[in-house]
């Protein structure tokens, strides 16, 4: 996926996550800043999930800022997907 602009998806509501996507120069790799209320227990799982999702969308170079308020994995995936698509300017809302 070709990221073009800074984009964001999600919220600060409990059980949700706020994800920001920033395109970076090709070859910089993935810079992931992760903050979560369940960091201790599930931080590693969350990081692994984000990597897996980025693999799926074939995104190698990106800065991702994740501020998690206890979102479940499907919510994290949905928010990340929306943020990526917004960055690639292929989607604006949550549904389309």
């Amino acid at each position: 996926m070709n990221l073009k602009v800074k984009a964001q998806a999600g919220s600060f509501e409990s059980s949700d996550v706020l994800i920001m996507i920033e395109p970076v120069e090709s070859g910089s790799g993935r810079i992931i800043e992760l903050k979560s209320i369940v960091m201790q227990q599930f931080g590693d799982d969350l990081l692994a999930q984000i990597h897996a999702d980025l693999d799926n969308f074939d995104v190698r170079d990106v800065r991702v800022i994740v501020n998690d308020k206890g979102a479940l994995p499907p919510t994290v995936s949905a928010r990340l997907e929306t943020a990526l698509k917004r960055s690639a300017q292929v989607q604006s809302g949550t549904l389309s």
């Binding site: 998806a9 999600g10 919220s11 600060f12 509501e13 499907p74 919510t75 929306t82 949550t94 549904l95």
Partner: peptide, 19 residues
């Protein structure tokens, strides 16, 4: 799935309102 997407959408809108 639609219900959940609507929910996610509503949360984003609420976040924007708060901001």
């Amino acid at each position: 799935e639609i219900e959940i997407a609507t929910l996610l959408d509503a949360r984003e809108k609420r976040q924007e309102l708060k901001q």
